[in-house]
Each structure stands twice: as structure tokens, then as C-alpha cells.
Simulated assay, not measured.
Amino acid sequence: MQTLTEKRVFGAKTGVTDIFVSTDSGVAAVTVSADQIGAFGLAHRGSATAVAATGDRLVVGTDEGLLAADIDAADRSADVPDPTFAAIGGDTIDAVSAVALTPEGLIIADGDGVVYRGEHAETVTEPPAWERLGATDEVRAIDAGLLAAADGVYRIDDDGLTNTGLTDVRAVTGIGQPLAATADGLFRLANGWQSIADGAFRAVAADGHGHAHAVGDAGLLVRSADDGAWTTTTPPVEAPIVDLTADRGIVAAVTDDGTLCVTAGDGWRHQRLGLPGARGVAIGGGTDGS
């Protein structure tokens, strides 16, 4: 934990950003300032299967349903969020395998591979009206209008789900050029899915500004925003990375033993959270620096 002196200077110039990690023990809330990792604690106690966040909302998937909470970042300084959750799955959402927040609402996949869409309600305590979009094999991840499933990458349309190809997809990003991490390799969507690298990949993330990261058996691959070239690097820690995300100028990764790794472009910092069984990581909002 930080000292009081460290808390006074933490985030003074670069601001503070919330990062949330879903684990078998709960959801860890971590404050970071650029690549400095600050205070952390449990925002939700109990096994969490998925997590998604925006600047003002946190959504947690569990084996029993879906929870949501409002996050107030104003004047929070370096304190970790202490949200109050409400169950919003209603009678529709049971076990959750993946969740994504969009400007319009939520996209949810349950344990049977059924995918639902719900518009944001007026209050976080009010369950949205859920629309069934379709069903697939096991859903692993949802991001920016794309869905990663055991039987391929699906595009989420107004009318439902459209399979775009590939198999055994572990992760996907639809920010910028779509990318997919599969058991057979890393792919980009151009004129169909085109191979970037061979081997099994577990996670992929992009920031919408040309940068991207992917992790797999080959190591950590990083795409340059300048020329689009991919470089293979060594992961920041030895434990396997299970999820990646990028937003607010930060790339965050989490390992299966609950180690959070963060970079803002000047090298990785990492912190063991003491929460094994990590499954996902999400970047929320925060406060701007002076």
C-alpha cells in the first residue's frame, strides 16, 4: 500500500484511472496514474466471470447473474472506488460468460452461448429490457461489435449475429482494424481474415490509434502505430497473461495468478494483487491531472 506522502503526489500531473480485474475471489479495483500502480481493493466480493467498465459505470458478470454499479470519479484523488451494486439481469440473464458496455447499452453472453442486448435504463438499479440476438458455441469475449466464440468471430448486427469465420477464437477487438486471437494464430480482418502470426494466442487489444498488443505462445506481440509492423517481445512477467485491454493511453494486462501489468508507453510496471484465478481486465474512467 502507499504511504500518505505517496498518495499526495500520486496522479497530481497525469490524473488517476480506474482498472478493474475479475477474479475467482471478486473484482479488484486498482488506481493507476500513467504507469504507476496505486491503491487497490475489492470492489465486489464473490467469484466474477467477466467485467466491463466505462467512465461512470461498472458491470460484473457472475455465475448467478449480472451486477452493475455507478462510479463517481469526481474529487476521488487516489482512493479506490467503493461501488454499490444492483442485480440487473432480471429473470433473463443467468450465468454470464462475457459482457461489454456500449454507448447504447450492454451486450451479454450467458453460459449457454446465448447473446442478449439491453439498452441502458434510467437508473442502474433498473434491469433493462433484454433482446435475444442469437446463440453460438462457447462465448469467450465481446468487444466493439465483435464476439469471440468457439465456432468463430461473430459480428453483432442490428438483426442479430453474423459469423465472419475462424474457429476456436479466444479474444477479439473491433477497435480500429479488427483483430482475433485464436488457437491457431493471430489474425486481422481485411479482405477476409488474414494471418499475422502462427501459434496459439490468448488475448488481444487495440487502442484505436494504431497501437495493438497480443499475447500467446510466441510471446507478447506489439504493433507500431507508425508503420503497422508487429514486434515480438518478452511479456513483463513469467505468469501467463489471460487478458489485455487498452484505453486512456494505458495498456493493462492481467495474469492467471492475479498480477496486474500496466504500461503507458515507457515500460511495464506490475503488481501482485493476491487474487488468483483472474479472468478479465477492464479500464474505466478516472480524473484528469493538473
Rank of each mutant, 00 (worst) to 15 (best):
7 K>Y: 01
11 G>E: 05
13 K>H: 09
16 V>S: 04
17 T>G: 04
19 I>S: 01
21 V>M: 02
28 A>N: 04
29 A>G: 15
30 V>C: 11
32 V>G: 02
34 A>N: 11
49 T>F: 05
52 A>T: 11
53 A>T: 04
55 G>V: 00
57 R>Q: 13
59 V>L: 07
59 V>T: 05
72 D>S: 11
77 S>I: 10
83 P>E: 08
84 T>V: 14
85 F>Y: 13
87 A>G: 03
90 G>V: 12
90 G>P: 07
96 V>F: 09
113 G>Q: 08
119 E>G: 12
125 T>V: 14
126 E>L: 11
128 P>L: 10
130 W>I: 12
132 R>H: 11
133 L>N: 06
141 A>F: 07
142 I>L: 12
150 A>V: 11
151 D>L: 09
168 D>F: 09
170 R>M: 11
172 V>T: 03
172 V>I: 14
195 S>E: 15
203 A>C: 09
220 L>K: 09
221 L>P: 01
234 T>E: 15
241 I>S: 02
243 D>N: 14
246 A>M: 14
251 V>M: 02
255 T>N: 02
255 T>I: 02
256 D>K: 02
259 T>S: 08
267 G>E: 10
268 W>Y: 07
271 Q>R: 15
272 R>A: 15
278 A>R: 03
280 G>F: 00
280 G>A: 15
283 I>C: 01
286 G>V: 11
